[in-house]
């Protein structure tokens, strides 16, 4: 009786992955992206112009800072404004509900660009009246107008996010809290919001990303944000790489933000994973 030596037992051969149509198509598609990537790098290396870079890099950074400030201020103001709107949307008062609905419908149904024009150029039609009430300094300035329009716009979206999140919490939570003798506001703060904000995190993250992308349109009312600086650089140099640089910066910001939101979500939903 001889025992089988270990050498005789081979692992089954690895089956080679067949070259299916999908694999060929996928390889070609990835190849295209790699070629585009290489082409882009080659183009940027080839078009490298220290003079251009030295001249516009600080301007781009300044523009980026303007973009970030604009988005941050509008999001915060919008968040504050969204609370009464969401409250009105959910209230039993018909009139309040209708007004809030109209507000949300208007700002979500029309393009942000049209709203920005309406504020910046449109309110300029009321210059005498605005001067009379002493608000002209505000609506004369494209920076304030941009913040004004953006805050109103994002407030409508954030109100809907807030409302959706609060309504996603089951009624029983309200009733349970009420039966423990918690006040309505306490219930909201201690029971409802902690659960609602988990639901709201991803939409809020998306809203911030949408605002960063949407903020590019302020370049059209001559605010020199990242997009504005890009347009200025292009109109002076006629060098297309100015747009490529802006695209890379925007892509980086959005990707970083997206990953941050993913990371936060992973952390705050840790207790929900079974």
């Amino acid at each position: 009786m001889s025992t089988v030596s270990e050498i005789d037992v081979d692992r089954p051969p690895v089956i080679a992955r067949p070259w299916t149509g999908a694999r060929i198509a996928g390889t070609i598609a990835v190849g295209c992206w790699i070629l585009i990537g290489i082409g882009l790098i080659a183009y940027l290396v080839n078009a490298w112009n220290p003079e251009l870079f030295n001249r516009y890099a600080p301007l781009y950074m300044r523009g980026l800072w303007v973009t970030i400030r604009l988005v941050f201020i509008s999001i915060v103001l919008g968040a504050l404004l969204s609370i009464p709107i969401a409250y009105a949307r959910m209230s039993d008062n018909r009139l309040l509900g209708a007004i809030a609905y109209g507000y949300v419908y208007f700002f979500r149904g029309t393009p942000l660009l049209a709203q920005t024009f309406l504020v910046y150029y449109g309110l300029g039609s009321f210059r005498p009246e605005l001067e009379a009430v002493g608000l002209w300094w505000f609506f004369r300035d494209e920076w304030y107008c941009a913040i004004f329009a953006f805050a109103l716009n994002t407030a409508a979206y954030q109100a809907e996010i807030l409302r959706g999140a609060i309504e996603s919490v089951p009624r029983g939570q309200w009733e349970g809290a009420a039966s423990l003798g918690l006040h309505k506001f306490q219930t909201l703060r201690k029971i409802i919001l902690p659960q609602a904000l988990i639901v709201a995190l991803r939409p809020y993250g998306n809203e911030i990303i949408l605002m960063i992308k949407g903020s590019a349109i302020v370049a059209l009312i001559t605010v020199f944000d990242l997009m504005g600086e890009t347009r200025r650089a292009y109109s002076r140099s006629f060098d297309f790489q100015t747009y490529i640089w802006a695209a890379l910066i925007y892509l980086t910001i959005v990707e970083v933000l997206r990953n941050i939101v993913d990371w936060i979500e992973r952390i705050i939903t840790r207790h929900l994973i079974r």
Partner: peptide, 15 residues
């Protein structure tokens, strides 16, 4: 999805 729509438009238009 990461590029601003306006920038995509300009990239396509000018590029």
């Amino acid at each position: 999805r990461g590029l601003p729509e306006l920038l995509t438009l300009f990239l396509i238009y000018f590029g």
